[in-house]
Amino acid sequence: MQFSPVWVAVALSVSAFPVSYTLNSLSTLEHSWSVALVGAVVLVGLFALVYLPSQSQDPLFYVFMVFSFTSVIDTIIALEEDGYISGFMEFYMKEGEPYLRTAHGIMICYWDGVVHYGLYLMMIIAMSQRKSYRNFGLYWIGSLTMSLVVFLLGNIVGKYGSEIRLAFLLNFPYLLIPIWAAKRIFSQPKPLPLLMADKVSEEQSKSILQRPLDLGLVGFFLLAAGFTLFRGLVVLDCSADTCFNYVYQQEPYLRDSVAYPKVQMLVFLFYLLPYFCLCLYGLLCPGCTWMLDWALVFAGAVAQAQFSHLGSSLHHRTPYPYRTPEGSWWPVVVSNVTYALGPHLLVYRCFRSPAFFYPVALRDEDKKKQ
């Protein structure tokens, strides 16, 4: 009897509960080196367990199977740190990665346990049905990369820098694997609809004023670019009164010594701000085929970042002086949610009517025929 791969993935991931409970009861796991060793053994054992009986031709299948298990582990960590369960991952919090007890650590665990887990299952289903999982994969790459970059850098430069232990090295495969996965996923053919050259020519000949949705997106990216630059200046200790008032009255979380919010704003400043500028170019100039892929990547990155940032600024684990003030709650929430929704609206626009982003060669070919 052969079981569906998705049910195998669910069964494997649910086994995280008895595995973590058993490991937590072992008295030998009282040293950082033993926790790191057991973590590495569990990951290698899971990979062998998935790889040996499987016949999949795509190596990412095994990666998603193992990562689905670690996603449930992250869910357990988040639930335990928020007090909903107990007795599962206390050993790892003490001698493994104590910085996961921060509000930011809990938020990224929730995101990994819900959003990433759902993406793994959807990509496994697509693989088993021999369908393209390219779009899911691009969104996952952006989300996972953003999560790891901010988390790892924040651990090193923040107040937990002195508490980094051997288990910290278990994060590096998660940073390297997305690079390899991105190369494989980007090389897959794009599942785009076939459009006639005259349709492409018609769409690409329209000005921005004839495209209301694009005009709205241009306005959003202009505002988002300004907001990104402003928050970048805030975490860089700009002495302007506006920056001073904002960091104390609107988002005091940006001053938190854990350093995650500061790193997050700097990543936005040096990577997201240039992307917003490129989006403005792509919405004004036809034929930017890269928009279709990178819109998904950055939508995943911004969604993960804003969930972690906003959730941490409101979470009870964040010290009270750094939490969002009650009087500023709605402006901060609305601005941060809008900041995350804009890139997703761009994804919708790109895939609803992609003709504007098709190669200009199609339009030129149509002119020659005329």
Rank of each mutant, 00 (worst) to 15 (best):
L292Y: 02
Y320F: 14
D256S: 11
G300A: 04
G105C: 06
L138N: 07
G226A: 01
F270K: 09
D214R: 13
T228Q: 00
H316W: 02
Q55R: 15
P212Q: 07
W140I: 14
M1Q: 13
M65E: 02
F230L: 07
L169R: 00
G226P: 07
M127W: 07
D366M: 08
A301K: 08
F221W: 07
L195A: 02
A126N: 13
F307G: 06
R363A: 08
S4G: 12
T324E: 10
A225M: 13
E251Q: 01
R165T: 01
L26R: 14
S71I: 06
P252Y: 04
S34H: 15
A126E: 14
L169D: 09
F61I: 14
Y120V: 13
R231N: 14
L236F: 08
S312T: 05
P18C: 09
G105P: 11
R134G: 02
L345F: 11
S328V: 07
L236W: 10
L176V: 15
A301R: 11
M265Y: 07
P274N: 09
Y260N: 14
S162P: 07
F88P: 00
Q204T: 02
N245S: 15
F168E: 10
M196Q: 14
K369G: 01
G96Q: 01
Y281F: 05
G45R: 00
L52E: 06
M107Q: 06
F61K: 13
S162M: 00
T75D: 09
I124C: 13
I141L: 09
V50K: 03
W180V: 00
L195E: 03
L79F: 13
V297N: 09
L169W: 08
S313F: 08
P191G: 01
K262S: 06
L362P: 01
V38F: 08
L166H: 06
L229I: 12
